[in-house]
Design a protein around this nucleic acid. Structure first.
Length: 426
DNA sequence: TGAAATGTTGGGGCG
DNA sequence: ACGCCCCAACATTTC
């Protein structure tokens, strides 16, 4: 007779501290088997040296190390998620399954399939809100519909938060994880190799001046917290408590994250479509050659080129520069925001569907609460204003001082008028 | 979480 | 002293 266990399924919540689903699993009364599944569907779309897979791998290794102190370990699988669950249920006598919710359309569908399978085997499954403070339709307008404008959403979010306060949950592993041992797989067995591009350590102890420094890419005061939030190494509840104490502007950025998550949840069509359907009529130029130049950072506009070089070399790009390169692609080159979104999705260490999509549609003026179409960034003015001493651009463009720096691939004044024309027409 | 075009004002040079 | 022009600085409107 096998002993009954509970399973906790780690996904994008790679931590022991303040983890809602894990907390409940450990309170289930059964020993808990912690698992992680490398989803073949997702992995198959990534290059073998993907930096995020490396980051996840390293993080799992650390989690496993911690579990080994409790005479336990992390079960790691790779393959089709449903197949893996089927084999798990054959091997173990499972009482209940716990995991934290994911709001992306693909994940919602995948999790539904898993829950269906568990139900046919009469196994209870429990899913929890963990990656946001307010999920799905917790924050809606008086008429019950989701907010599509940021500021009123933020006001309601803050009102709710101050009323409710979100508590953290203390995790106790001892004697509650399954007593077993496994060998941690090498990254090669997962089909990957270690990436040269690394996630930087986050810096959140010095954010009191965030609102004054955040717009200047040469000032290295970025929190670098986004990849940690993306994969759940840090709990959002902890981050919000910290932000409340330290800096309102930083908190606003965390609320933007939740704003776009609820937009994605309530309007999943934004994944492939303009939020504002009237812009479906836009005829993007979609010039392949110009797109390649943008990707490589060869547009002839230093601030655009430096941003793309930073992205290509490090997997990061400063937020101010993200807005500039996005505006340039959509407005100056008139290339479909989906092309830019897909490129960022490949390269960004903090890539997250909801935020990436929301911010690209913002820049392209096709999104909810987007920048008005006639607000077109001037890459020269932006450089003067936010990197007047050329510290940032010089870091990424060593040839900048030479007279041979390439000429802009498109004249600003010309491109601006062309974009206004195209957008005005629809 | 713009930028350019257009309008207004006021000081200084100068006949 | 006065009107006129120029233009910078600022404000408003427009895209």
């Amino acid at each position: 007779m096998k002993n009954k266990i509970s399973i906790f399924w780690f996904r994008r919540d790679l931590r022991f501290e303040d983890n809602t689903g894990l907390f409940h699993a450990l309170s289930s009364g059964y020993k808990v088997l912690p698992i992680f599944i490398f989803d073949e569907e997702i992995l198959s779309q990534l290059p073998v040296n993907d930096a995020r897979v490396s980051f996840i791998y390293d993080t799992l290794f650390e989690l496993d190390k911690r579990l080994k102190k409790e005479a336990s370990s992390l079960l790691i699988k790779k393959g089709n998620v449903i197949d893996i669950w089927q084999s798990l249920l054959q091997k173990y006598e499972v009482a209940s399954v716990y995991f934290n919710k994911d709001y992306e359309p693909y994940a919602i569908e995948r999790d539904l399939q898993v829950q269906k399978l568990l139900k046919t085997k009469k196994i209870k499954s429990f899913s929890y809100k963990d990656q946001v403070i307010y999920e799905e339709q917790e924050i809606v307008k008086k008429d019950g519909k989701p907010y599509t404008v940021y500021t009123p959403y933020k006001n309601e979010w803050l009102k709710r938060y101050h009323l409710e306060r979100c508590v953290e949950k203390d995790i106790v592993l001892k004697d509650r994880v399954l007593n077993w041992n496994s060998i941690f797989p090498s990254i090669e067995t997962i089909g990957f190799e270690t990436s040269d591009i690394k996630v930087k350590l986050f810096q959140i102890d010095d954010l009191h001046n965030y609102h004054n420094v955040r717009d200047f890419p040469y000032i290295d005061k970025t929190s670098y917290v986004s990849p940690y939030l993306r994969f759940g190494l840090i709990s959002i509840r902890k981050m919000v408590i910290h932000a409340l104490q330290v800096n309102q502007t930083f908190l606003n950025e965390l609320i933007w994250r939740e704003f776009f998550m609820q937009i994605l949840y309530n309007f999943p069509r934004v994944v492939t479509e303009n939020f504002k359907t009237k812009y479906n009529a836009i005829v993007w130029r979609n010039n392949q050659d110009e797109f390649q130049k943008w990707c490589k950072g060869e547009t002839g506009y230093p601030i655009v080129d430096a941003g793309m070089k930073e992205l290509n070399n490090t997997g990061y790009m400063h937020n101010r520069v993200r807005m500039i390169v996005a505006s340039f692609l959509c407005k100056h080159l008139l290339i479909d925001w989906r092309w830019g979104e897909a490129y960022f999705a490949q390269k960004l260490l903090d890539y997250e569907l909801a935020s990436n999509n929301g911010n690209w549609q913002w820049a392209a003026s096709t999104g909810c609460d987007a920048v008005p179409y006639f607000r077109i960034f001037n890459p020269t003015t932006q450089l003067k204003r936010f990197d007047s001493k050329y510290d940032y651009v010089k870091k990424w463009l060593p040839n900048l001082n030479e007279l041979s720096y390439p000429k802009p691939i498109v004249d600003h004044k010309f491109a601006r008028i062309r974009a206004l024309d195209v957008f005005k027409k629809v």
